[in-house]
Design a protein around this nucleic acid. Structure first.
Lengths: 176, 176
DNA sequence: TTTTTTTGTTTGACATGCCAAACAACCGGC
DNA sequence: GCCGGTTGTTTGGCATGTCAAACAAAAAAA
């Protein structure tokens, strides 16, 4: 029952993850290198904050700097950044393309959870999406069917998430 | 661009959400009422921390206290607690029953995101789960088919999320 | 070359959220 | 009534992550 404290126990904080992503973004145009002020502009925070935050990221081996203050991702940092980007991408695609969540909301939600979801969950979601885009005709049918189910669902106006307790029973009843 | 700062911009912090859940849990056996030390025991933090945190929750109208320091959720707090519980439940069920993520991992991941996912996303996920447990024969077929797809997937050993960039193209290619 | 701007760092401040420790108030048993 | 344990609060400390402001050094403009 102390599962809830795991929230703090991530490899990367949200802030740290976005510093890595910012370095990656800036680096795309500069051969992998970024400057403190580029990162600050990308994240819309002050150079001072970036300077301090990079200190920690360097110490923990996510980023490296050269003698001219130029910053780049370490191999470890690159892997981490890629993992975060991929998780965000797959979650966002799932939300907007399968669940039909509005684009902007899918962007916001996926951005919030990108650094929090575990590798197993990320991988399984990738598998699921792969299945949905596979040759299997069932996959395409299901997406279409869900859309019409969703449109016709008599509860589509009333079943807000906050009525969730009956949902739980409902799902367990159905054997899920 | 500045979407990433939304992470901090939630109604409830993770900590605050779990304070509300703790009050709910304790309250189940005491007619909705809880004491500071019950909440502290439930969350496994000190009474001092709870005392301070409750101050903020009271000020913002999530909880109420009587003259004997007894604590209960306000109507607003009840709704919030229910929404969080429902989101966690539906995410956990989706992860473990559809994606086949191990139970414990599903518990951890759902706990991390429970307070972060938006109402629209939560509702759509509920619809999706409702569809999967509906009469529609397609729903049951798909779950079975995904399991076998997943078992046979030639990439099931290699396609980690960190190879995600090709995934993104792959998904977009497929029109998703 | 001199001046101006940009850049990276440091400092002090604030906010959140945790702890341990000290404290007063209260409750129960005797 | 009295004493020991429980309870809620307060205080000071630590860690993270942000800001503004001041600074020196490097780069660009004059």
């Amino acid at each position: 029952m102390e599962t809830w404290k795991e929230f703090e126990a991530n490899e990367l904080t949200h802030s740290a993850a976005h510093h890595l992503l910012a370095i990656y973004e800036v680096g795309l145009e500069y051969g992998g290198w970024a400057r403190v002020s580029d990162i600050a502009r990308e994240l819309n925070i002050t150079r001072g904050s970036v300077s301090i935050n990079l200190r920690a990221l360097k110490k923990r081996g996510w980023v490296e700097t050269d003698e001219h203050h130029m910053v780049k991702l370490s191999p470890k940092g690159q892997k981490a950044a890629q993992a975060v980007m991929a998780k965000k991408a797959v979650v966002k695609t799932f939300l907007s393309s399968v669940l039909n969540v509005p684009e902007l909301q899918a962007e916001i939600d996926s951005c919030k959870v990108e650094h929090l979801i575990s590798q197993p969950t990320g991988e399984q979601l990738v598998h699921f999406m792969r299945f949905l885009v596979s040759e299997d005709p069932l996959a395409k049918q299901v997406l279409a069917r869900f859309r019409s189910f969703h449109d016709q669902c008599p509860e589509s106006k009333t079943c807000e998430v906050c009525h969730g307790h009956c949902l739980i029973e409902e799902l367990q009843h159905a054997g899920l």
